[in-house]
């Protein structure tokens, strides 16, 4: 498996994501600067959390127009695994790889804590083998995690089984408690506000993040 993690100015979870890929999947991870216009073919591409471009204009908006993202979109549409936690989720929606958008948390405050998530869509390389209804406990840390999608978009997501995770106790006002969304031709793109890469070692308070990464070995 060939894996990379893209770094934008203001990314701050890029190393965490690369280490998570290395530890859980046993792969070597290339680090890719966002200015790259050509990208080798990868099986797994990480779009990390952080505050790319200081969240200017809209979170993820400017990163989504980075040169490298055209390549990421192309490879995603070609079936490559693309995982975007937190700011990565915002970037993937801004790039049009996932439906909807993320706006300021309903309660207006930055939310930083562990939350319980319910696994829903299990037809994806990330959630295959997980039991539908299983609870995962993952950390969140965001100010703009309110997922917005219109009624038609929500019906489509639900009908196609593309809601990967829902919050048990909605921390940010997301539509229909949605925490993670699948996209791409074979549900190969996963965007989510929680941070699986921050939950792969007991020392860091949990290992449930491994549950979303380990299935990729069979993908």
């Amino acid at each position: 498996m060939r894996a990379c993690v893209v770094t934008f100015p203001g990314s701050n979870c890029d190393r965490d994501l690369a280490v998570a890929f290395e530890r859980v999947l046993g792969v070597r991870v290339d680090r890719v600067w966002h200015k790259r216009t050509r990208l080798d073919r990868y099986d797994l591409i990480g779009i990390p959390g952080g505050f790319s471009y200081g969240d200017h204009l809209r979170p993820g908006a400017i990163a989504a127009r980075s040169p490298v993202m055209q390549e990421v979109v192309r490879q995603a549409n070609d079936g490559a695994l693309v995982l975007g936690p937190c700011n990565g989720f915002q970037i993937l929606t801004e790039a049009g790889l996932l439906p909807g958008a993320l706006i300021r948390n309903r309660g207006l405050a930055f939310v930083c804590r562990r939350v319980d998530l319910v696994v829903e869509g299990t037809d994806s390389p990330y959630t295959r083998g997980l039991e539908r209804g299983r609870t995962l406990r993952l950390p969140i840390a965001h100010h703009d995690g309110g997922y917005v999608v219109d009624d038609e978009g929500l019906r489509r997501l639900e009908g196609e089984g593309r809601i990967a995770l829902r919050y048990k106790d909605n921390p940010n006002g997301s539509t229909a408690d949605i925490a993670g969304v699948l996209g791409g031709p074979r549900n190969n793109v996963l965007g989510l506000m929680p941070h699986p890469e921050r939950a792969i070692e007991p020392l860091l308070g949990g290992v449930d993040g491994r549950a979303l990464l380990a299935p990729l070995l069979a993908a």
Binding site: L57, A61, R65, T93, P99, G100, A101, V149
Partner: peptide, 9 residues
């Protein structure tokens, strides 16, 4: 269309 607004929201 390209940057300034997000037509989704």
């Amino acid at each position: 269309e390209r940057l300034l607004a997000n037509p989704v929201i």
